[in-house]
Protein backbone atom coordinates (compact mmCIF):
# COMPACT_ATOMS: atom_id res chain seq x y z
CA UNK A 1 0.00 0.00 0.00
CA UNK A 2 2.72 2.45 1.01
CA UNK A 3 4.88 1.41 -1.93
CA UNK A 4 1.99 1.90 -4.29
CA UNK A 5 1.25 5.33 -2.86
CA UNK A 6 4.90 6.24 -3.38
CA UNK A 7 4.71 5.18 -7.03
CA UNK A 8 1.58 7.30 -7.49
CA UNK A 9 3.26 10.31 -5.93
CA UNK A 10 6.28 9.70 -8.14
CA UNK A 11 4.14 9.93 -11.28
CA UNK A 12 2.35 12.99 -9.91
CA UNK A 13 5.71 14.76 -9.81
CA UNK A 14 7.50 13.07 -12.71
CA UNK A 15 5.03 13.74 -15.53
CA UNK A 16 4.67 17.48 -14.82
CA UNK A 17 8.44 17.64 -14.39
CA UNK A 18 8.99 16.36 -17.93
CA UNK A 19 6.26 18.64 -19.26
CA UNK A 20 7.69 21.69 -17.50
CA UNK A 21 11.21 20.91 -18.65
CA UNK A 22 9.96 20.60 -22.21
CA UNK A 23 8.14 23.90 -21.70
CA UNK A 24 11.40 25.66 -20.88
CA UNK A 25 12.74 24.78 -24.32
CA UNK A 26 9.54 24.97 -26.34
CA UNK A 27 7.98 28.16 -24.93
CA UNK A 28 8.57 31.12 -27.21
CA UNK A 29 7.84 33.79 -24.64
CA UNK A 30 10.78 34.21 -22.22
CA UNK A 31 8.48 34.70 -19.22
CA UNK A 32 6.63 31.45 -19.96
CA UNK A 33 9.96 29.75 -20.34
CA UNK A 34 11.18 31.06 -16.97
CA UNK A 35 7.95 30.03 -15.27
CA UNK A 36 8.29 26.54 -16.72
CA UNK A 37 11.76 26.36 -15.21
CA UNK A 38 10.32 27.36 -11.82
CA UNK A 39 7.70 24.62 -12.13
CA UNK A 40 10.42 22.15 -13.10
CA UNK A 41 12.43 23.06 -9.98
CA UNK A 42 9.35 22.61 -7.85
CA UNK A 43 8.47 19.18 -9.23
CA UNK A 44 12.10 18.09 -9.05
CA UNK A 45 11.98 19.01 -5.34
CA UNK A 46 9.04 16.59 -5.05
CA UNK A 47 11.22 13.82 -6.51
CA UNK A 48 13.94 14.68 -3.97
CA UNK A 49 11.41 14.34 -1.15
CA UNK A 50 10.51 10.87 -2.43
CA UNK A 51 14.21 10.00 -2.19
CA UNK A 52 14.10 11.16 1.50
CA UNK A 53 16.35 14.11 0.71
CA UNK A 54 14.05 16.66 2.38
CA UNK A 55 16.77 19.20 3.07
CA UNK A 56 17.95 19.16 -0.53
CA UNK A 57 14.38 19.51 -1.76
CA UNK A 58 13.63 22.57 0.35
CA UNK A 59 16.96 24.19 -0.43
CA UNK A 60 16.27 23.62 -4.10
CA UNK A 61 12.92 25.39 -3.85
CA UNK A 62 14.33 28.13 -1.63
CA UNK A 63 17.46 28.95 -3.61
CA UNK A 64 16.56 28.19 -7.21
CA UNK A 65 12.81 28.61 -7.42
CA UNK A 66 12.48 31.27 -4.73
CA UNK A 67 15.51 33.46 -5.22
CA UNK A 68 17.44 32.95 -8.44
CA UNK A 69 14.45 32.53 -10.74
CA UNK A 70 12.73 35.57 -9.22
CA UNK A 71 15.74 37.65 -10.26
CA UNK A 72 15.63 36.09 -13.72
CA UNK A 73 11.95 36.90 -14.02
CA UNK A 74 12.58 40.39 -12.73
CA UNK A 75 15.18 41.04 -15.41
CA UNK A 76 13.04 39.54 -18.16
CA UNK A 77 10.02 41.57 -17.13
CA UNK A 78 11.91 44.84 -17.00
CA UNK A 79 14.06 44.39 -20.09
CA UNK A 80 11.68 42.79 -22.59
CA UNK A 81 9.08 45.25 -23.71
CA UNK A 82 6.25 44.49 -26.07
CA UNK A 83 6.15 41.36 -28.17
CA UNK A 84 9.41 39.58 -27.74
CA UNK A 85 8.17 36.20 -28.96
CA UNK A 86 10.97 34.47 -30.76
CA UNK A 87 10.17 33.63 -34.34
CA UNK A 88 10.14 30.03 -35.38
CA UNK A 89 13.49 29.09 -36.86
CA UNK A 90 13.16 28.54 -40.56
CA UNK A 91 16.53 26.84 -40.96
CA UNK A 92 16.02 23.23 -41.99
CA UNK A 93 19.61 22.39 -41.01
CA UNK A 94 19.02 23.49 -37.42
CA UNK A 95 15.85 21.42 -37.17
CA UNK A 96 17.52 18.30 -38.51
CA UNK A 97 20.53 18.77 -36.22
CA UNK A 98 18.23 19.32 -33.25
CA UNK A 99 16.27 16.16 -34.03
CA UNK A 100 19.50 14.16 -34.27
CA UNK A 101 20.75 15.60 -31.00
CA UNK A 102 17.51 14.81 -29.18
CA UNK A 103 17.46 11.28 -30.56
CA UNK A 104 21.05 10.82 -29.42
CA UNK A 105 20.28 11.95 -25.88
CA UNK A 106 17.23 9.66 -25.68
CA UNK A 107 19.30 6.75 -26.99
CA UNK A 108 22.06 7.32 -24.41
CA UNK A 109 19.55 7.52 -21.53
CA UNK A 110 17.67 4.39 -22.67
CA UNK A 111 20.90 2.44 -23.11
CA UNK A 112 22.21 3.54 -19.71
CA UNK A 113 18.98 2.61 -17.92
CA UNK A 114 18.89 -0.75 -19.70
CA UNK A 115 22.50 -1.50 -18.80
CA UNK A 116 21.80 -0.81 -15.13
CA UNK A 117 18.98 -3.32 -14.87
CA UNK A 118 16.95 -3.71 -11.67
CA UNK A 119 18.72 -2.23 -8.66
CA UNK A 120 18.44 -3.76 -5.20
CA UNK A 121 16.71 -1.45 -2.74
CA UNK A 122 18.88 -0.62 0.25
CA UNK A 123 17.59 0.59 3.58
CA UNK A 124 18.31 4.24 4.34
CA UNK A 125 19.82 5.10 7.74
CA UNK A 126 17.36 6.98 9.95
CA UNK A 127 19.40 10.21 9.93
CA UNK A 128 19.83 10.20 6.14
CA UNK A 129 19.26 13.61 4.60
CA UNK A 130 18.48 15.33 7.91
CA UNK A 131 19.77 18.83 8.54
CA UNK A 132 22.13 17.56 11.25
CA UNK A 133 23.65 14.83 9.10
CA UNK A 134 24.14 17.01 6.04
CA UNK A 135 25.46 19.88 8.17
CA UNK A 136 27.98 17.66 9.91
CA UNK A 137 29.20 16.36 6.56
CA UNK A 138 29.46 19.86 5.10
CA UNK A 139 31.43 21.24 8.02
CA UNK A 140 33.85 18.32 8.43
CA UNK A 141 34.53 16.27 5.34
CA UNK A 142 33.62 18.92 2.75
CA UNK A 143 34.75 22.01 4.66
CA UNK A 144 37.25 23.15 2.03
CA UNK A 145 34.84 23.06 -0.96
CA UNK A 146 32.19 24.70 1.22
CA UNK A 147 34.43 27.59 2.23
CA UNK A 148 35.82 27.90 -1.28
CA UNK A 149 32.28 28.25 -2.61
CA UNK A 150 31.43 30.95 -0.10
CA UNK A 151 34.61 32.80 -1.03
CA UNK A 152 33.62 32.53 -4.70
CA UNK A 153 30.21 34.00 -3.94
CA UNK A 154 31.81 36.85 -1.99
CA UNK A 155 34.12 37.63 -4.91
CA UNK A 156 31.11 37.58 -7.24
CA UNK A 157 29.21 40.03 -5.03
CA UNK A 158 32.18 42.39 -4.83
CA UNK A 159 32.61 42.11 -8.59
CA UNK A 160 28.96 42.92 -9.19
CA UNK A 161 29.18 46.00 -6.98
CA UNK A 162 32.35 47.18 -8.73
CA UNK A 163 30.83 46.70 -12.17
CA UNK A 164 27.49 48.30 -11.27
CA UNK A 165 28.74 51.33 -9.33
CA UNK A 166 31.25 53.60 -11.00
CA UNK A 167 31.92 55.68 -7.89
CA UNK A 168 32.06 53.84 -4.59
Amino acid sequence: MIDRAEVWVFWVFAVPLIMASAGVVVARNPVNSAMSLVAAFFFLAGIYVLLTAHLLAFLQVLVYAGAIMVLFLFVIMLLTTGDQDFERTRLKVMQVAGAFGAAGVVAVVVLAVNRLGPMPMSAVPSNFGTVKAVGRLLYTQYLLPFEATSLLLLVAIVGAVVVAKQRI
Binding site: A45, L55, G66
Partner: peptide, 22 residues
Protein backbone atom coordinates in the same frame (compact mmCIF):
# COMPACT_ATOMS: atom_id res chain seq x y z
CA UNK B 1 6.36 17.00 11.12
CA UNK B 2 9.34 17.38 8.79
CA UNK B 3 12.96 17.48 9.85
CA UNK B 4 13.76 20.67 7.93
CA UNK B 5 10.52 22.38 8.96
CA UNK B 6 11.76 25.95 8.97
CA UNK B 7 13.46 25.51 5.60
CA UNK B 8 10.12 24.34 4.25
CA UNK B 9 8.64 27.59 5.56
CA UNK B 10 11.29 29.70 3.86
CA UNK B 11 11.15 27.73 0.62
CA UNK B 12 7.38 27.84 0.21
CA UNK B 13 7.16 31.44 1.42
CA UNK B 14 9.62 32.43 -1.28
CA UNK B 15 7.30 30.95 -3.91
CA UNK B 16 4.61 33.47 -3.00
CA UNK B 17 6.50 36.11 -5.00
CA UNK B 18 5.39 34.56 -8.27
CA UNK B 19 1.72 35.21 -7.65
CA UNK B 20 2.19 38.95 -7.34
CA UNK B 21 4.92 39.34 -9.94
CA UNK B 22 2.97 37.36 -12.52
Amino acid sequence: NIDAGLLFVFGIASLAVYGTAL
